[in-house]
């Protein structure tokens, strides 16, 4: 295990942006908004956000906004709540939330709440607790949480709780660490963590750590760097993160670095990508790895950005 190759990861993240015409980029172009969030947040955690041309990013984000108020994953793509959150998060990173019409974005999200409290991802009606988290997180960042029925939203999330203390996509769905992050995050932001059985969920989550030190997303699955975020942030929000070995997890994440060309992969010696680079760096930040900016486990933004939103006049 070496140290974090911070410089190389910065270079890697910046290089991905330049390879717009690679096959990988074309296949992934529909979620470029997510990519921007992953890459830029990772840069901020690494202390290098200032190398980015803010105006260029902001004007591109605005070009992805639709009449409805929602954002698409890229220019020409349809609006979806998934990309609306990323757009808002990136603007928050740059302290540029004032460039958008907050009420219009709010209106889009409000329109997606269903009668039972759940949220659809877009006008086509797919329902998933991921969208509940996104709606709640996004509105809270915009300081407009009172515009939805929070009580019903919370009730719906609780209806997705399972015998193992975890949460699924919809009622009856199997617990999955990514889904658990969404539900725990949404409950955290609505001050409803008392509705979780923290010891039961904490045991399930801490048992995600496998021999190699990495975390998996469900029982009897392989570890993956992205769960360093999903599992870890959930354990932190319910104050049970001491139930895993931080040292072993740090070692696993560092073992997944491409120390030659930068970037982090899902498992050691696999191909790197921005998604796993972000989750690796964010995971290390949650593990209090030296030299990284701390990240907030619920809003998934650097703590200083979140504190600026909520604790400055």
């Amino acid at each position: 295990m070496g140290d974090l190759a911070a410089e190389k990861h910065v270079r890697y993240i910046l290089s991905v942006e330049k390879k717009k015409d690679s096959f990988e980029s074309v296949v992934m172009e529909h979620l470029r908004m997510n990519g921007a969030y992953w890459g830029l947040t990772a840069l901020d955690i690494l202390g290098k956000l200032h190398v980015v041309d803010v105006d260029e990013v902001v004007s591109w984000i605005i070009s992805c906004q639709h009449e409805s108020g929602g954002f698409g994953g890229n220019v020409e793509h349809d609006p979806h709540i998934l990309y609306t959150l990323s757009a808002v998060q990136v603007l928050a990173l740059f302290n540029k939330l004032d460039v958008i019409d907050v009420d219009r974005v709010t209106g889009y999200i409000v329109s997606l709440q269903n009668e039972d409290g759940s949220f659809s991802g877009d006008i086509w009606g797919e329902v998933d607790t991921r969208f509940s988290y996104i709606a709640i997180c996004c509105l809270s960042i915009l300081r407009r949480l009172d515009r939805i029925n929070v009580e019903k939203a919370v009730k719906y999330i609780i209806s997705c709780k399972n015998m193992d203390g975890g949460f699924g996509c919809t009622p009856g769905g199997e617990s999955h660490a990514g889904q658990i992050f969404c539900c725990v995050g949404a409950l955290a932001i609505t001050g409803s963590l008392d509705l979780i059985d923290k010891d039961l969920l904490g045991w399930w989550l801490c048992e995600r750590q496998v021999k190699s030190g990495g975390l998996n997303g469900r029982p009897e699955k392989d570890p993956d760097v992205c769960y360093s975020w999903w599992v870890l942030s959930s354990l932190i929000m319910i104050d049970r993160v001491h139930w895993i070995s931080k040292e072993k997890l740090i070692k696993f994440i560092l073992d997944c670095q491409d120390t030659e060309n930068g970037g982090i992969s899902d498992r050691p010696d696999d191909a790197v990508d921005v998604f796993h680079t972000y989750f690796g760096v964010a995971g290390l930040s949650l593990l209090e790895y030296p030299g990284l900016k701390p990240i907030d486990p619920a809003y998934a933004l650097p703590v200083d950005v979140v504190n600026q939103i909520f604790f400055s006049k």
Binding site: L145, I189, T190, L193, M237, P297, A298, F310
Partner: peptide, 10 residues
């Protein structure tokens, strides 16, 4: 942070 009542938890 989130087990404490605050503006962050609304």
């Amino acid at each position: 942070r989130y087990l404490c009542s605050s503006p962050l938890a609304n």
